[in-house]
Design a protein around this nucleic acid. Sequence first.
DNA 1: TGTGTGCCCGGTTACTGCTC
DNA 2: GAGCAGTAACCGGGCACACA
Length: 430
Amino acid sequence: MQDELSRRLKAKRASSTAGLGAAFVAAASPKLLPGEGRLALVLPATVCTGPSWNQTRALIEQDFILDMVIASHDPERWNFSESTSLSEVLLIATRRSEEKRQTNHRIVHVNLWQNPSGVLDAHRLANAITAVEPAPLEKHGSALLEVDGHHVGELISIPEEVYAGRKWFGVQFARADTLRVALRLLIEGEVWIPGETTTTTIPLCQLDQLGKVGPDRRDVWDGFERTGTVTAYPMVENHDTEQRKRMVTEPDKYLAPLVEPRAGRHLRQAAQLWQQAGRLLVAERLWLETTRVVAMHSSTPVLSNVWWPIKTDNEAYDKAIAVWLNCSLGLLTILAQRTTTRGGWVAMKKADLKELPILDLRLLTEDQLKSMSNLFDEMAESEFERLPAMAVCPARQALDDGIANVLGLPDLGKLRHLIASEPVVSNRRL
DNA sequence: TGTGTGCCCGGTTACTGCTC
DNA sequence: GAGCAGTAACCGGGCACACA
């Protein structure tokens, strides 16, 4: 794995846009001390936000200290390299001896709302970065980047220890306040709405503590073939966002177990795969701009080609989790945990889904759990707007209000607006 | 032609059970 | 317990296809 990452890192470094990286390194990174060296890397966002994020960081931190992470939230250009259109992240790190490492090191995140299009623009932006003191994560306020009278991004600094055992959440949101809401929820279990002085604590746990995530689409393909004929193995097929508007779904296809393995493949035992079928479904890959629901509930256990089936031992849990993941707080956790491929084209990897922080239903009162389940039943047939319209979507508002009522939370309207206007969701510049 | 969605190749890594 | 083999679990990403 390390060898593979080394190869990919070197390949990526060689193909990166030298002008942008050089400009940032020259103007925007901290001054070097004698004996120190500097490294600028452009990496695919999948490397920083996907399941291999920890190996990537370990590789860099063998000899370097990460100083700055620059991410583009510009829908017109998610990339820094000329050779790709996929989302990328620019890292600036310093080779520093062990004794010179600071104990209170902070990583500066630069989240660009407009990605500079050339070397001269990059220089001006880099100079602007040096002129702005990053806003600390722990405090309020924004450190806006201004070039030619236009705000083109934000700086926020995050203590290194916040990232212990966690992926680089700092690249996931364009604005500091959205990031603060997400991190306070994920790390502290605190629901905080920007502008409010109080917070509400809710119990969270990992998704795999409440249910088991089922087989991926490859496994299903290696054990079954799809058919319109009724079999003992129902499935939910595809993710047409014009069809998937509700939290409730029914099987719409069937699976027939393979007798022989597909060419060049091992046969997966259908019975074994079927043991992992679930009533709860969570989107495996999605376009944030078009998607309406990220989790659904089926009346019977199913497998799927584009949804993760999740098997719990409690149908009330299935319904409550579907409600939670589709409300603004659940969506925020999905966005934070996502693997970015290109802008709003994102994936929920199995490893990330298992660790996804969700409401710990085991710690709710019986009445609260019943209310969550009832909320699902009441809203099962409601149609949701696409995520960019979630701020004005009556169904999403009703869902948020219902959750807030059950858990004693403040109004989540401001959070809906924040999420809906994130460029990765709206596909529009801030 | 671009966007959105789905298919599936060609693997690697993790896990498990067996033998010594 | 170490080493090994077979199997299960999992993945990146290129490409196909429908449709506007």
